[in-house]
Design a protein around this nucleic acid. Sequence first.
DNA 1: CTGAAAGCGCTTACAG
DNA 2: CTGAAAGCGCTTACAG
Lengths: 328, 328
Amino acid sequence: MKHTVTAKDVAKLAGVSQSSVSRVFFEGAKVSEKTRAKIIAAAEELGYRPNEFARSLITNRTKIIGIVMKGVQNPFYPQVLKQFAAAFKKKGYSILFVHTNNDEIEAEDVETLLNYNVAGVIITDAVMALTVGEEFKKNKIPVVFFNRKLNSEEFYSVSCNNLDAGRKVAEYFFDKGVSEMAYIAGDADTSTSRDRQKGFQEVLKQKKARYRHYSSDYTYNGGFKTAMHMVAEGDLPSAIFVANDIMALGVLDALKENSIGVPGQTKVIGFDNIEMAAWPAYQLTTWEQPIDKMVHATVTYLLEEIAEYTGAAETFEVDGRLIERSTT
Amino acid sequence: MKHTVTAKDVAKLAGVSQSSVSRVFFEGAKVSEKTRAKIIAAAEELGYRPNEFARSLITNRTKIIGIVMKGVQNPFYPQVLKQFAAAFKKKGYSILFVHTNNDEIEAEDVETLLNYNVAGVIITDAVMALTVGEEFKKNKIPVVFFNRKLNSEEFYSVSCNNLDAGRKVAEYFFDKGVSEMAYIAGDADTSTSRDRQKGFQEVLKQKKARYRHYSSDYTYNGGFKTAMHMVAEGDLPSAIFVANDIMALGVLDALKENSIGVPGQTKVIGFDNIEMAAWPAYQLTTWEQPIDKMVHATVTYLLEEIAEYTGAAETFEVDGRLIERSTT
DNA sequence: CTGAAAGCGCTTACAG
DNA sequence: CTGAAAGCGCTTACAG
């Protein structure tokens, strides 16, 4: 039979009470150095490890962070996942990974997170109905919307300053002497795509330049098809701002397919600065999202709210920067 | 205060005992339809949800699967993670995601998995010291080594039939009339890279062809650098078998950089069939790993072992197939 | 500083 | 089929 070593076993061997054993393994509790030493020795001998479930049952808190993610196709997100895992591990937290298929986080997923009484939740690229957010609020579980701008009094969200980025990209194109430009949008219901567009469009309007819009979906194939379509139309703009890198790669491939020179005939700027953007085949100029800063803000907020729940809402934005490569 | 609804609350409202409430939510227990209905109604009214921790404490089992992963840079693994998440969700299991930095899974990670008393463990691309495996065995926690061939009497491992794949790739090259070929290896301490090499080399030896070996590391940059080096050497083989796709993309980019025609001057075959292999920019011929079959075998084994632990070891291999594109 | 005891929210023999 | 009760392995007032 699987015999799990309990605090009781350790107590017996060390000749102390079970409470003292508990105190040694529960940070913040006080024990004399002498008994601590005895207990540590006994625990090591038996291979004792406190049972997380008993602990959680009584404290009503866990060391688990739920991460809800949809698009593992976009390398941006695995990258983010990795950084979260590393940051939370350092703080003693584990990651419950929830993958949603739909755009919207499913009731079932929320159920899971609630069942495990997660200490905090990060919602990454899925859209979440606000009723679902309320569910977490009711249970005083802090939630961060990552890479989304919510402008909500209810929830904390962290994103890159997409509006500013859109503006800067437009200005950069103008500085390069380009005035005929287009935007290829990502999923229309995402704040990221809308804000990048908004900033971009704003500057064009200021300069009285024509704004051209193409709808797409944040995928490689979406970018590829859109660019093929643009080329087929015959009226190719001399610069294209693509809402994310993975689409931009599709765009570049489509242009290459049509023997359209970049940056000669048209210039391309992406968004994210995923690893592939730096590959020799692409050398994509792009707007870098400061993942580390975004992750840091998320972790800090979550940890603070876990320590003392306030339900504070904020729309936190981090500045990114342009990485110039060979497509502009 | 956060008031969690307990079985007791539901019992009171429904006018039954707490045990009956428990029976309704614990599958396999029997309750009359009448009381079940009353309880369900009361539970819904109160928003009751059984506490997983209390449950786990008493049953000494969880519905959590630990997945240990290292290389999120290689898109193959996020893809795998997604499939596991989907498959286990269907079975009511959740995923505890553990990211290791080192090649070797760290003691700390094992500790975490053990603390949460996970029902099963999947070790994906990390190497694991056998002593660590013993730790799980001692606790009767089934472990699967995914994408690794162990040939161990101790552990279950599932991989693509890499030996066979290596052979088939070599034969394919010969069929194409090529006899000067090279292999670019991935991390040397992985069974995947060694087996692919072995099968490949075996056929070359049979045909008395020269075998050329280049060491690399399963990364894009590794592939790129290796190919640059090969070109610089001056004696480029007329076909290259690259141990995985992400390296093969690096190889293709390096060849392009040197204006070396593919498949004209040299042919390239990768391994995995990641999404990017099908991109127009690459159109990489590759050996497809049947992820779905590999995932299915893993899930089936784990579920069986969770139901009744036997500690059965097996080295399970799944056949892949060649996907012909434009690099051959 | 330490121990005895209550209790977290469940499951599960055991009676009835 | 149902309820009363024990107990899973912890934390945490409460005494001493």
